[in-house]
Design a protein around this nucleic acid. Sequence first.
DNA 1: CGACGCATTGAAGAGAATCAACCGGTGTGG
DNA 2: CCACACCGGTTGATTCTCTTCAATGCGTCG
Lengths: 234, 234
Amino acid sequence: MSRLSPLAPEEAKAVERLESRQRSWRRGAYIQRENDQAEELVILSEGWVIAATLMNDGSRQIVQVHLPGELMGSANLMVPRVPMSLCAITEVTAAMIDRGAMARLLADHPRLASHLLAMAELERLTLADRIASLGRGSGRARLAAFLLDLLNRLRRLDPSVTDQFSMRLTQEQIGDATGLTAVHVNRMMRALVEEGSITRDGSMVTVLDEPKLMRLAHYVERETIDTSWIPEHA
Amino acid sequence: MSRLSPLAPEEAKAVERLESRQRSWRRGAYIQRENDQAEELVILSEGWVIAATLMNDGSRQIVQVHLPGELMGSANLMVPRVPMSLCAITEVTAAMIDRGAMARLLADHPRLASHLLAMAELERLTLADRIASLGRGSGRARLAAFLLDLLNRLRRLDPSVTDQFSMRLTQEQIGDATGLTAVHVNRMMRALVEEGSITRDGSMVTVLDEPKLMRLAHYVERETIDTSWIPEHA
DNA sequence: CGACGCATTGAAGAGAATCAACCGGTGTGG
DNA sequence: CCACACCGGTTGATTCTCTTCAATGCGTCG
């Protein structure tokens, strides 16, 4: 959260207290299941988590891939049932935050609502970009957008990341995220390799021609967010 | 906004003052253009507006259809450039809200940030549903979901709406929203008519078999939002 | 060793895009 | 007032992307 705009010391302390209740999950475990009673929000500290919804024909759509540091299930604050399953796709540790505790936090530190608002708006933009990618855009384009999104978010997380990262999703999961079948993901991945955009070595993906990928994906780099509108701390 | 949770009188007054600067646009006019300097948010009072982004291959993706009462371009508060064009598809009147005025409003009435947060989260859920619809789901399913979404939102807006509404988008625009071509929208629309799910008369669309449409669309009715977490007004 | 998860590859089929033409209504300028 | 252009909807024929079904290989783990 502090990446957006500095917190006052007592705000930071209050947030930290919330994060004390850490738990861990192994690969494949569900952190929250769709339609469960929504009691808690989750802050991801280690590992990758997917937010997905199951459709009544058995297919699955992965709506987001969460990386460490992100707040997950923020809608749980205000809906009675969990809208999307959260599933650990690697070893995961995360902090569970009670819905009531979150409400108290906002009551005690009203300025934090603005921070959450900024995060929510940012994610809304990301989702809008994903809608554009899914609605228009070939399989190759969707895949390119998906890879670039992951790469850029990992860069923000760890500045030592340059042009490669370890893909922690199976091709089946990539398909569920991009709206393709696993088979087609495989073929498109291969196509990206053959045209020289990327290379692969095991789970490692290296981006060779980023401008080309960006063009292919219609990728828009979202500019840094302006936080000057967040009220000053008293 | 007050539909979510009652506002204190002085909050309501402050919000109303913001909405005083009304303007109107004719069909087809742009209210905001992608990449413009982001100076203002917009509250829609009359008419329909689409939020769309243009891709570099010339195709367009409509991310949202805005109905009266909605806050549009809320991201403009925090990004330097308008992320998505707002285009009037009917006669439109709306209130322009200066970004600075919005910031002052949040500073003076910090509780309102919670309200905005609730609205943002709600829209995030809507966008997530749209992602699921676009990612998985045939043309018919996407179209069904699109129609049901509009119908249900119009119902919330005007309780006298039961099973029909006037579709204000052209088939080309429906295609841009559902990720299909205009031609295919036409065929799928026709298919929905032939299977007895809907009928059409001019721009009027009547839903004949709503349960069937909902099954087809994997439609999930989002439950009412819980606002008990919003801090009490002092 | 055998089961299983995951990546890979081939062949066939379905769904959607593309290209092209036509139609009715509406507006508009001569 | 009419001719014409234009927009939006409709339809047919063709092409292509992606899915589906099926089989194989490879590494890991019990």
